[in-house]
């Protein structure tokens, strides 16, 4: 349990630093940035009680907000995906999730991809809606959601693939 706490704390700090120091300055094609810190919510232990998941997700979102001067935008978005996480887990991994027998890295790639994609898309949509805060810009919101999501999903797959090798 202690090593789990340690690895999650380390992940929390490292993901925030990578996000604010590197990823927020990419500005690919002018406005596309990946939001890798979502990975923290995705990788929280599956048997962790839900209120802890909610609280830690809120905390990482709020930390990003402090760095980005963005009010509560990131906090709200991560909180919503943390709340939806059990539903999406059940949807993506099916019965094996309910028996809590799955290990994240041992699941089939298609199931993992659907889990990542749904949560990232929801997160980014809420993030950009709240950030722009004006529904006459709905096209802009959708455009940013789509492009940033693709970037984030690719990056998450890449990072998880890298860490998978190490843990074996």
């Amino acid at each position: 349990m202690n090593s789990l706490l340690l690895s999650n704390t380390a992940r929390f700090i490292i993901l925030i630093l990578i996000q604010v120091v590197v990823l927020n300055n990419i500005n690919f094609l002018g406005y596309i940035n990946p939001y890798l810190y979502v990975l923290f919510v995705l990788l929280l232990p599956l048997n962790l009680s839900q209120y802890k998941v909610l609280f830690f997700s809120f905390l990482i979102g709020l930390s990003i907000d402090f760095f980005e001067d963005s009010g509560g935008v990131n906090a709200a978005a991560t909180l919503v995906i943390a709340y939806l996480r059990p539903v999406i887990l059940k949807f993506s991994f099916g019965v094996s999730y309910e028996h809590q027998t799955i290990k994240y890295y041992q699941t089939p790639i298609t199931q993992r991809l659907s889990y990542i994609s749904i949560l990232v898309l929801v997160h980014h949509f809420i993030l950009f809606s709240l950030e722009i805060f004006n529904y006459s810009y709905i096209i802009l919101i959708l455009k940013r959601t789509l492009f940033s999501s693709i970037f984030t999903i690719l990056l998450i797959l890449l990072v998880t693939a890298l860490f998978q090798k190490k843990s074996k």
Partner: peptide
């Protein structure tokens, strides 16, 4: 309930920031 509380808090910050 925890979700709703924290959501209200973050939306409050969001509206303030605008």
């Amino acid at each position: 309930l925890l979700f709703l509380c924290l959501l209200c808090l973050s939306l409050f910050f969001t509206i303030q920031s605008h």
